[in-house]
Design a protein around this nucleic acid. Structure first.
Lengths: 411, 411
DNA sequence: CCATTTAGTTTATGTCCTGAACTATATGGG
DNA sequence: CCCATATAGTTCAGGACATAAACTAAATGG
């Protein structure tokens, strides 16, 4: 009866479908094609038409809008030796970026990420935020953010949005940190307006593990559509990517591995429960179990971590046993998580990545013991993301939002 | 620049957006409004226009297509005493239905579910399917299905599709049961063509727990958007509803609670691991731990279950301890699952529902011990769904598919 | 210099939603 | 009995959009 080419999508009940929606979808489609091209490969309108399966006419019209939005620019190109009219290259505008930020227990950081996901500049400022009033931390970060914004202006870079990652549970809509035990925060509403001059631009708040998972996704490329990222910071967080999208769960806290029960009769945990993964594999748990000696008492956590590495390198048994115990419990928790989420790839980040060689054998063994059918297909990896992971992920995710709804910048 | 009213959706890369898509989305939208109305409340075109926020003109045109598709029918209505032209009522066609089926360990079943989700007729046939060749079971089910189809024809009911639930992991696309240890099946490709005469109609294969979760969702209504359904059959399965949709995970096996590790040093499990929930709270585990005495040896499982209930009613300690132990481990597993999925409602079905009074105190206590912050907000419920749950869920889900893409029936 | 080739634009056409005008059908008061 | 009023539903002109085909632009190569 009607000629149609694509799948319908049930429109949200508060906004009926409209021919304009098609335009929005196709704008995003064209932009996705441009963004998906290999960075050095400038696409022509004709290329885009082929890849997007839209007609040349439509692509020309859509590209005109994208040029007007400033997300895309033209680069003149003369094809070498080929016949025919030369094509005009189209690329994501390198003069547009998003600011990514992170508040962690012992530092704050900020950086600029361009539309292709590249980290242009960044700065990490050591700062003990534990127990410090949220307002003060935001002020310090605001300072750092201002520096970044000045740096951007100096290079004629326009900032289109921002993302902030914090080590705790967040409510994105209200820009509220619900729980961040490692910062000592509870239900802190963050004044994020201080962080960006352009109040029009979009701003998002992320859990640190989720942001890192997003950065890891970018790192591994689009082929890896499903994995669990386990972030071993002071606490143990988790970020889940399912079908190439962040799966955050009803309140945005899905994937949190730290309080999975690994020893029903185990030690009490800071969460009020007992036998949680964090009581065995959390940074504090490993450090105290490693029995680093009297010299370590009273030292800062950073110093104690250094001691731990030294102890491991020198083969001190109490240290390697502590890490192996952590690895074993990690295997138990990961077995359950892989089962429940039905994922077969797990990426360990944060301090787990640094502990790889001592951790992995125990984790693998434990996983094999508790879930052989999963272990046989499991991919356990360790993330090379350093301290910039969370800010890159937060910024890149905001970039993704922008690229998915370019029509907002067209009007 | 452009006047628009709705959110864009990035079209799948294999099909560009097209004005026709708007129609598809709006057809589904109108249908959703009709389906969402309270069953006795027939909506007029004018009502639909108001609720869908489409214009009267568009609604009239869209409704014409829906009438042509047969999914919707008109019912003349004269409003009592009100002024103005009387409206024409529109309802889902009661003469359209979907056939739902289930293969379980000791029975097969089939039933007809209409577009409003109501079970019209059904039949449950006891049958020991354990260890029986899949082909034979399908033949038996095909027989039952034929009876249903005849019954449908006799009432002028048109069958638009079918859904089949099986107690195991499935691959929907290839109609293959990958693992069904309780049936003794492994990688069985099911010849589902035998089950439906209309080869054009759509057919879907479900895991039993997922199908039951979908039925539970229908039962609880649209307000409950997130919950975990735990199905205590011979094995322990799980179905997860997130944001009012089934979350099946990458391969469709998400939410499977049976092999979550609850005792790292526990008993070996049939899955090859150890300390899985099923080794403590599975039907077999409870029955053998309950120590039902020599009389129970050699009895059928159904008989032994009856004995268990008797023992519990009469206060036999070994039985109540066995169930309490199961409940305790269930609490551990549920604590982890609620944490990982970030859901706060869990519904227990299958034989767990029958054990509610003996199970719940132990489960609640265990949950409180291991995750007090979750326990304080948790909703633990028990499902009233009986043996028809899975078939209703499977059928209803197929109905949902049909209502979401009505354009396929319009042409 | 002109045929060939490829890039991109213009134009006519059909779908679809919208808003406004219009028709259809009821109630109720004079 | 007739007409004002109210509500339901249809018709029609108009604008946004994608499409296909024709057309223009700009290069190469013989």
């Amino acid at each position: 009866m009607r000629k149609t080419t694509a799948e319908a999508q049930p429109a949200p009940l508060d906004a009926p479908g409209n021919v304009g929606d098609v335009r929005k979808a196709n704008l995003a489609r064209v932009l996705a094609v441009i963004a998906g091209a290999h960075s050095e490969h400038r696409l022509s309108r004709a290329d885009i038409a082929t890849r997007s399966k839209l007609t040349k006419a439509s692509v020309s019209s859509l590209v005109a809008d994208l040029l007007a939005s400033g997300l895309v620019i033209e680069i003149g190109v003369h094809r070498d030796g080929e016949r025919g009219r030369p094509s005009v290259g189209l690329i994501l505008n390198p003069a547009r970026c998003v600011i990514g930020m992170e508040i962690n227990v012992d530092y704050i950081s900020a950086g600029l990420v361009d539309l292709s996901g590249k980290l242009l500049t960044h700065q990490i400022v050591p700062r003990l935020n534990r127990g410090v009033n949220a307002e003060q931390v935001i002020d310090a970060l605001s300072e750092l953010s201002s520096q970044m914004q000045q740096a951007a202006e100096a290079q004629d870079l326009k900032i289109l949005g921002g993302g902030l990652a914090v080590p705790g549970l967040v409510d994105e809509k209200s820009y509220t940190v619900l729980q961040a035990p490692n910062l000592g925060w509870e239900t802190q509403s963050l004044n994020v307006r201080k962080l960006l001059r352009e109040t029009k631009s979009r701003f998002r708040l992320f859990n640190e593990a989720n942001a890192s998972a997003l950065a890891q996704q970018q790192l591994m490329g689009p082929a890896e559509r499903d994995f669990l990222f386990v972030s071993g910071e002071v606490g143990i967080g988790g970020g889940l990517i399912i079908d190439a999208e962040l799966f955050a769960g009803p309140q945005g806290h899905a994937g949190e591995l730290g309080h999975v029960v690994v020893q029903p009769e185990g030690k009490p945990c800071s969460c009020g429960g007992r036998g949680c993964l964090e009581t065995v594999a959390g940074q504090e748990a490993i450090l105290s179990a490693a029995n680093l000696g009297v010299a370590a008492r009273g030292a800062s956590r950073q110093q104690r971590i250094e001691r731990l590495y030294q102890a491991l390198e020198s083969g001190q048994e109490s240290a390697s046993i502590a890490v192996a115990d952590a690895g074993k419990s990690l295997g138990v928790a990961v077995a359950s998580a892989m089962r429940l989420f039905n994922v077969s790839t797990v990426v360990f980040g944060g301090h787990f990545a640094a502990l790889e060689q001592w951790l992995l054998p125990a984790t693998t063994h434990s996983l094999t013991t508790h879930a052989p059918s999963i272990a046989s297909q499991a991919q356990l990896r360790f993330s090379p993301l350093g301290q910039t992971g969370a800010l890159i992920g937060a910024a890149h995710s905001v970039v993704g939002d922008l690229l998915e709804s370019p029509h907002q910048l067209v009007g």
